[in-house]
């Protein structure tokens, strides 16, 4: 479950981050400002606050607007909150990745008549992606660990399962040790996979 939460949040974060980076790099001042506010707000407040806010405060707001009480599903709300938070970090990652691509690559694409979208899709983003893969993986690993924060709003993931088992048997040492071990195995496996991908991408170096 933790892995699933992190995977969905990373994927959503990647989509939001691409959009955010596009907005930040666009020529529209409005989009620039919008993306900056997004990044600053979600990087500048604690994730546990965002999750709690989304689950406890947002329904109140929606209730006010709709005029009838509403309750959010904790899992979906939690994943959405983590995704949006991850999107803010990924926006900065992708932006710096794109800025890191040599200016000559953009110019060569322009002189060959590639459209903006083709240039980005075929030339720039693949190179940017290669550069940001390591920090992107560490973002994914962070999210696996941060998925434990969803236990605070009642999502049954690894952390919650461990404390529940502990409470049932009046013994916290074994379940928490096992759960920690599982977190560690997950993150180590992800690290190993990312090293493999990096090696494969290195063929063009």
């Amino acid at each position: 479950m933790s892995l699933l939460i992190a995977a969905i949040a990373t994927a959503m974060g990647l989509i939001l981050g691409t959009l955010g980076a596009a907005a930040k790099l666009s020529r529209s001042k409005f989009l620039n400002a919008l993306a900056s506010v997004y990044v600053e707000v979600f990087r500048g407040t604690p994730m546990i606050m965002q999750i709690t806010f989304a689950f406890l405060a947002l329904p109140a707001l929606v209730t006010l607007i709709l005029g009838r009480p509403i309750r959010f599903n904790p899992l979906i709300t939690g994943i959405a909150a983590i995704s949006i938070n991850s999107g803010a970090y990924t926006t900065e990652l992708i932006r710096s990745g794109i800025n890191g691509v040599d200016k000559g690559q953009f110019e060569a694409a322009d002189t060959l008549g590639l459209t903006y979208r083709q240039k980005m899709r075929l030339v720039i983003l693949p190179q940017a992606f290669k550069q940001i893969l390591p920090p992107l993986v560490s973002e994914f690993i962070t999210l696996i660990k941060d998925s434990s924060l969803l236990s605070t709003i009642g999502v049954v993931e690894l952390m919650k399962s461990a404390t529940t088992v502990g409470a049932n048997y009046y013994a916290y040492l074994p379940p928490l040790t096992v759960a920690s071990g599982i977190y560690l195995v997950m993150t180590l496996v992800i690290s190993a996979i990312s090293k493999m991908i990096e090696r494969r991408l290195a063929v063009s170096d």
Partner: peptide
């Protein structure tokens, strides 16, 4: 400007593509 070919001082071949892909990307996509 499609009738112009441009050659740069620093070549600017697309680093993520093979030589063949560098040569075919524009004819195919443009």
């Amino acid at each position: 400007r499609i009738i112009m070919g441009f050659v740069f001082q620093h070549f600017n071949l697309f680093a993520n593509m093979t030589v063949m892909q560098n040569l075919t990307v524009a004819p195919v996509n443009v």
